[in-house]
């Protein structure tokens, strides 16, 4: 590669420092005694203590986790069906529109998705009285709509790599299509489903804009609380919260990575 590789290595170092520097600064200053986030006043865990006694943040976090879990579970089912359809059914009426509907939520700006869903919820309430008011239910529906698209992409790429001869063998041995799906296909694509579930969970936990549109007066999610407090300036409690999130997510991604790596090794072995 010659001289060009120096450029590549330099860009990679800059890139990784750029990606991790800010996160590292959050983690370090979450243990700062001083209230001023940028002045080091000694090691302390007091912000974690304050965070764990902050009723507003705790109840918002609990709401967000419930929405995220419900969202991820429904999104995995719908996203898996959609990803499966995209990978396996080459031709069906409306496939063009279908792929557009899957790609749309991936790129559409949040403000548009949020506004359009809110207007739908308002119109539906006027027309059929459901959903009555806005809150946890409407936020969850909104989140399912965009996270299922992400799940579909993850599942689609996994199913496309799948060796169809396994399923054919099961069919030849007399298994029914649904039986084949649950006995053969599902176990093979399971890691993609786990990754998809985690992705949907994270996306939901992270969303401020769409939830703000879809929410009513009663429901305040964690990002809304964080946003309100961040707007007032830097706050050490948010640093502590960030550190906890980074810790949990780091652990989850590590587990998902190990699962995917094992899956890939198995796939590589079976194709040899």
């Amino acid at each position: 590669m010659g001289r060009r590789s120096y450029w590549v290595i330099a860009a990679m170092i800059i890139g990784y420092v750029f990606l991790y520097g800010p996160i590292l600064s959050l983690v370090i200053y979450s243990f700062n005694e001083s209230r001023l986030v940028t002045v080091w006043g000694g090691f302390s865990t007091k912000w974690y203590g304050e965070l764990l006694h902050n009723e507003q943040i705790l109840s918002a976090a609990w709401l967000s986790v419930r929405i995220a879990a419900l969202n991820a579970s429904v999104a995995v089912v719908l996203g898996t069906l959609a990803g499966f359809a995209l990978a396996r059914f080459r031709r069906f009426r409306g496939r063009g529109l279908f792929t557009t509907l899957i790609t749309g939520p991936l790129v559409m700006p949040d403000v548009i998705i949020g506004l359009s869903l809110l207007l739908l919820f308002v119109a539906m309430e006027q027309a059929i009285g459901w959903p009555a008011g806005r809150g946890m239910l409407t936020i969850t529906i909104a989140h399912i709509t965009f996270s299922m698209a992400y799940v579909a992409v993850v599942v689609q790429s996994r199913v496309a790599q799948l060796d169809p001869s396994l399923e054919e063998a099961a069919m030849d041995l007399g298994a029914k299509p649904v039986g084949v799906f649950f006995a053969v296909t599902l176990p093979i694509i399971a890691p993609a489903l786990v990754a998809g579930w985690l992705l949907a969970f994270t996306l939901s936990l992270d969303d401020l804009v769409i939830a703000s549109f879809a929410s009513g007066p009663g429901a305040t999610t964690l990002p809304m609380v964080v946003y309100a407090s961040v707007r007032l300036g830097v706050s050490p409690q948010i640093n502590a919260l960030a550190t906890l999130i980074v810790g949990v997510v780091g652990f989850a991604v590590l587990v998902a990575g190990i699962l995917l790596a094992r899956q890939e090794r198995l796939a590589a072995r079976s194709s040899d």
């Binding site: 985690l198 964080v226 960030a242 999130i245 980074v246 997510v249």
Partner: peptide, 8 residues
């Protein structure tokens, strides 16, 4: 980093 909170 994409999996950690965007807002944060």
């Amino acid at each position: 980093p994409f999996w950690t909170s965007f807002l944060i």
